[in-house]
Design a protein around this nucleic acid. Structure first.
Lengths: 249, 249
DNA sequence: CGGTGCCTTGATTTTCATCAACACCTGTGG
DNA sequence: CCACAGGTGTTGATGAAAATCAAGGCACCG
């Protein structure tokens, strides 16, 4: 089964054309913009630059000058950190509707991690200096975005605690469930992670090796918890996976 | 050797007296206040409530209503998260001059972790609703604080990467070096961590057991890298410890 | 149809948690 | 003043979990 992109992605993408087509209502429901009028959203959209990213393309690189901030409209972004010894660690996934690369909001002048399109993605972006404008001019913009920062910080703390205390099996189960929750779509026999994931990817999220992940998935498949093909995972028994993950509650 | 508190800590602490004694210059050099006038700092100080915390006392608890934010003047604060299974994970240490419990700045209404005084500490605090006042009235206040948030987020990402990729020995070395960097004071034969630390504490910072930490410290002591007594660690060969920690550069 | 990227599985080894026992230091209360 | 309890630290023995080493298979792409 291939990943079919929605019709939104035309073979040739002309920014002006695209923005004209893009209805203001697309942003209306997103937290950062929820308190703005249609006219205000139009203003903001007119300042934005849209761009499409092929799977595997970097949106920005760790250490690069943080000159823009981004809003993901469609697709998935993987936030990756590379260690001194060259290993990669996946810190976070960004789902549509979320801002990312918000280093400018935190007074950083470089990005702390690399952002890569995990699937074909569409994002709009603004120059970093506009952050202050938006924050002062539009009520609730800063507030809502700092709320997001707070949530991410909390989530990172949870993941740190997991890495420090949970066994590999629980961490892998947790990682898969997180992806399912963020981007899962219903299919015949379960819920499918809506973008390509390799065992290697999962190992980079959980601090283990691709071998161990492979063994776990094989065992789970034998047990009827998941079904997986190349770069593809369907969770067929989410509840049992939750139990395995040792989640609270 | 005992921990001697500076004269600042009188047996009986009277807030008014204390604030009168506390010179505005104490805040002048701290990032959040560096751009303010003496008069403005006086205003802010007059709204603050000071309090002393004995070692082991909680400043606030995970999940509690986030009704205040804090500035640490002296001592050390440990930020601790408790997992579903009851283990503790130390997320962070706060050094004097830093804000903490800044959930209000991130639109959270509960604290995401518990803050405990790791040594006798002195902090001042303000009601959460004043955050917005300060942010709008005092230039640079919000900016500087969000910079701090950004730094902490970056540091947490680094620690996550370490937990995911480094071996226990490297993580323990790294944790000790971090404490030394934050609060180290020079002594005869090296640099001493300026607050009490148990093997258990270190294991909670690094996701290992107190047994393993004990073995490592014993080995390092035999090797001349550190010297340690009960709840006490002196690093005698920082450079070699850095090598062990596998830090970049 | 050959190459590359992704996945699987067995065998072996390493690391570190766990189990267990004990020593020591410090403050407390009889 | 001494006994004792609780928190802290050490060290050995054992075992389990997961990394590493190794080899090969299969899917997809040009």
């Amino acid at each position: 089964m291939r990943y079919k992109r929605p019709a939104l992605f035309l073979p040739v993408q002309i920014p002006e054309f695209f923005l004209a087509k893009l209805d203001e209502s697309l942003l209306t429901d997103l937290p950062p913009f929820s308190r703005l009028t249609r006219a205000e959203i139009r203003e903001i959209l007119d300042l934005a630059t849209p761009r499409r990213y092929d799977e595997g393309t970097a949106v920005f690189d760790e250490g690069a000058e943080a000159d823009r901030f981004f809003l993901l409209l469609d697709g998935v972004i993987r936030v990756v950190r590379t260690t001194a010894t060259g290993e990669q660690v996946i810190a976070l996934h960004i789902a549509p509707g979320q801002l990312f690369g918000i280093a400018p909001a935190l007074e950083r002048n470089t990005y702390p991690a690399t952002a890569v399109a995990a699937a074909e993605s569409l994002a709009i972006s603004w120059p970093a200096r506009l952050w202050r404008d938006f924050a002062t001019r539009y009520d609730g913009f800063a507030t809502e975005n700092y709320r997001t920062v707070g949530e991410r910080l909390g989530e990172m703390q949870t993941r740190m605690a997991d890495l420090a205390t949970k066994a590999v099996e629980q961490r892998v189960a947790g990682a898969i469930l997180r992806m399912v929750n963020q981007t899962g779509r219903k299919v015949e026999d379960g819920i499918e992670i809506a973008f390509p994931v390799t065992r290697q990817n999962i190992s980079e999220m959980t601090g283990t090796t691709l071998h161990t992940v492979s063994r776990l998935l094989s065992a789970w498949e034998k047990d009827g918890l998941v079904r997986s093909t190349r770069r593809h995972i369907v969770v067929t028994a989410p509840h049992r996976l939750v139990l395995l993950s040792g989640a609270a509650g």
